[in-house]
């Protein structure tokens, strides 16, 4: 059987999650590999969520938020951008493949973009293969 990656998606309630809804209602196809979690704002995402996601077996983590300037709360995603940028660097320096973590700004009206991004990211993670570095294995760890 070919490798099907597990993708953890963390999306903000106001833009990306609604964008995902739009992709659904417009019957756009995107891979089923995504498990989407809704948070109220991208700045609510604690980097530990991302690390924990990888530990529990995610092969890739996709974070979605409003476009900078469009945050429902005004500035949430501007803080989030800094946080996620540092998270990315930390994952990279720890040895995680940079391609397994991605941040995208997707608005509520961008159902198309959502489907595209998920498709693209899933393919990218599929070529990277299973994530084994952080994943907790039953023996030993």
């Amino acid at each position: 059987m070919s490798f099907e990656p597990k993708i953890l998606g963390i999306a903000c309630n106001w833009c990306t999650y609604t964008g995902a809804d739009l992709a659904g209602t417009t019957r756009l196809k995107y891979p089923q590999n995504l498990r989407l979690i809704r948070v109220m704002c991208s700045s609510r995402i604690n980097p530990s969520f991302i690390i924990r996601g990888f530990q529990l077996g995610a092969d890739g983590v996709l974070v979605g938020g409003c476009h900078p300037g469009d945050c429902h709360y005004g500035t949430g995603n501007l803080y989030a951008r800094r946080k996620l940028a540092i998270t990315r660097k930390i994952l990279e320096f720890a040895g995680m493949e940079p391609g397994r973590f991605r941040v995208e700004w997707i608005s509520a009206s961008e159902g198309n973009k959502f489907a595209e991004v998920v498709g693209e990211f899933t393919n990218q993670v599929r070529t990277l293969g299973p994530q084994t570095k952080f994943k907790i294995t039953k023996d030993g760890q």
Binding site: E92, F93, A94, G95, M96, E97, P98, K133
Partner: peptide, 8 residues
Amino acid sequence: KDARWAFW
């Protein structure tokens, strides 16, 4: 990256 992961 693999060497870095092995190191840490």
